[in-house]
Protein backbone atom coordinates (compact mmCIF):
# COMPACT_ATOMS: atom_id res chain seq x y z
CA UNK A 1 0.00 0.00 0.00
CA UNK A 2 1.08 3.57 -0.56
CA UNK A 3 -0.33 5.96 2.01
CA UNK A 4 -1.11 9.49 0.90
CA UNK A 5 -1.56 12.30 3.43
CA UNK A 6 -4.79 14.09 2.62
CA UNK A 7 -5.26 16.34 5.65
CA UNK A 8 -5.86 16.52 9.38
CA UNK A 9 -8.63 14.68 11.16
CA UNK A 10 -9.90 17.97 12.63
CA UNK A 11 -10.62 19.13 9.07
CA UNK A 12 -13.60 16.82 9.19
CA UNK A 13 -16.36 17.70 11.68
CA UNK A 14 -17.26 14.96 14.17
CA UNK A 15 -20.12 12.91 12.68
CA UNK A 16 -19.49 14.72 9.41
CA UNK A 17 -17.68 14.14 6.12
CA UNK A 18 -15.42 15.75 3.54
CA UNK A 19 -14.76 14.94 -0.07
CA UNK A 20 -11.46 14.00 -1.71
CA UNK A 21 -11.29 14.16 -5.50
CA UNK A 22 -9.43 11.13 -6.85
CA UNK A 23 -8.79 9.48 -10.21
CA UNK A 24 -11.54 6.95 -9.37
CA UNK A 25 -14.05 9.71 -8.60
CA UNK A 26 -15.07 11.53 -5.48
CA UNK A 27 -14.30 9.67 -2.26
CA UNK A 28 -15.97 10.73 0.99
CA UNK A 29 -14.07 10.68 4.26
CA UNK A 30 -16.47 10.04 7.15
CA UNK A 31 -15.48 10.88 10.71
CA UNK A 32 -17.54 8.57 12.91
CA UNK A 33 -15.67 9.13 16.16
CA UNK A 34 -12.98 11.29 17.74
CA UNK A 35 -10.25 9.30 15.94
CA UNK A 36 -12.29 7.06 13.63
CA UNK A 37 -12.47 7.70 9.92
CA UNK A 38 -13.87 5.70 7.00
CA UNK A 39 -13.45 6.29 3.28
CA UNK A 40 -16.06 5.29 0.71
CA UNK A 41 -17.50 6.31 -2.64
CA UNK A 42 -19.32 9.64 -2.49
CA UNK A 43 -22.00 8.36 -4.82
CA UNK A 44 -25.12 6.49 -3.74
CA UNK A 45 -25.78 3.53 -6.09
CA UNK A 46 -29.49 4.38 -6.00
CA UNK A 47 -29.71 7.85 -7.63
CA UNK A 48 -26.19 9.16 -7.30
CA UNK A 49 -26.77 11.13 -4.09
CA UNK A 50 -23.68 12.74 -2.51
CA UNK A 51 -23.13 10.57 0.57
CA UNK A 52 -20.70 13.11 2.06
CA UNK A 53 -23.75 15.34 2.59
CA UNK A 54 -25.60 12.66 4.57
CA UNK A 55 -26.07 12.26 8.30
CA UNK A 56 -23.30 10.15 9.85
CA UNK A 57 -24.45 7.94 12.72
CA UNK A 58 -22.70 5.05 14.41
CA UNK A 59 -20.54 3.58 11.63
CA UNK A 60 -23.15 4.33 8.99
CA UNK A 61 -24.19 7.14 6.71
CA UNK A 62 -27.66 7.99 5.39
CA UNK A 63 -27.92 9.29 1.83
CA UNK A 64 -29.44 12.80 1.79
CA UNK A 65 -31.61 12.13 -1.23
CA UNK A 66 -33.67 9.07 -0.30
CA UNK A 67 -32.39 7.87 3.07
CA UNK A 68 -30.52 4.77 1.98
CA UNK A 69 -28.26 3.74 4.85
CA UNK A 70 -24.79 2.27 4.26
CA UNK A 71 -22.53 0.44 6.68
CA UNK A 72 -19.15 2.13 6.26
CA UNK A 73 -17.24 -1.03 7.24
CA UNK A 74 -18.57 -3.07 4.34
CA UNK A 75 -20.15 -0.47 2.09
CA UNK A 76 -23.31 -2.57 2.13
CA UNK A 77 -26.75 -0.93 1.99
CA UNK A 78 -28.78 -1.68 5.11
CA UNK A 79 -32.37 -2.80 5.57
CA UNK A 80 -34.52 -3.44 2.54
CA UNK A 81 -32.29 -1.55 0.10
CA UNK A 82 -29.80 -3.50 -2.00
CA UNK A 83 -26.56 -2.03 -3.17
CA UNK A 84 -23.00 -1.42 -2.17
CA UNK A 85 -20.51 1.44 -2.22
CA UNK A 86 -16.78 0.95 -2.63
CA UNK A 87 -14.70 1.40 0.53
CA UNK A 88 -11.05 2.41 0.74
CA UNK A 89 -8.33 1.82 3.32
CA UNK A 90 -7.74 4.91 5.42
CA UNK A 91 -5.90 5.46 8.69
CA UNK A 92 -5.17 8.18 11.21
CA UNK A 93 -1.62 8.75 12.35
CA UNK A 94 -0.81 11.54 14.80
CA UNK A 95 -3.94 13.27 13.63
CA UNK A 96 -2.99 13.03 9.93
CA UNK A 97 -5.35 11.32 7.54
CA UNK A 98 -3.73 8.76 5.27
CA UNK A 99 -5.54 7.10 2.37
CA UNK A 100 -4.28 4.14 0.33
CA UNK A 101 -3.06 5.57 -2.99
CA UNK A 102 -3.22 2.19 -4.77
CA UNK A 103 -6.88 1.77 -3.94
CA UNK A 104 -7.78 5.17 -5.40
CA UNK A 105 -5.66 4.74 -8.51
CA UNK A 106 -2.90 7.03 -7.41
CA UNK A 107 0.64 6.23 -6.40
CA UNK A 108 2.15 8.03 -3.46
CA UNK A 109 3.72 11.33 -4.29
CA UNK A 110 6.36 10.76 -1.67
Amino acid sequence: MSWIDIGHIEDIPLHGARVVKTPVGCVALFRTGAAEVFAADDRCPHKGGPLSEGIVHGQSVTCPLHNWVFDLNTGQAQGADEGRIGTYPVRVESGRLLIDGDAIGKRSAA
Binding site: I4, G7, V19, K21, T22, P23, C26, L97
Partner: peptide, 15 residues
Protein backbone atom coordinates in the same frame (compact mmCIF):
# COMPACT_ATOMS: atom_id res chain seq x y z
CA UNK B 1 -16.10 28.14 4.55
CA UNK B 2 -13.46 25.46 3.97
CA UNK B 3 -16.03 22.75 4.63
CA UNK B 4 -17.67 23.56 1.31
CA UNK B 5 -14.51 22.71 -0.64
CA UNK B 6 -12.94 19.27 -1.16
CA UNK B 7 -10.49 18.20 1.51
CA UNK B 8 -7.95 17.32 -1.14
CA UNK B 9 -7.74 17.02 -4.89
CA UNK B 10 -5.71 14.01 -5.95
CA UNK B 11 -6.63 14.23 -9.61
CA UNK B 12 -3.96 16.87 -10.21
CA UNK B 13 -0.57 15.52 -11.24
CA UNK B 14 1.83 15.75 -8.35
CA UNK B 15 5.41 16.65 -9.07
Amino acid sequence: RAQYAPLANLTLEAA
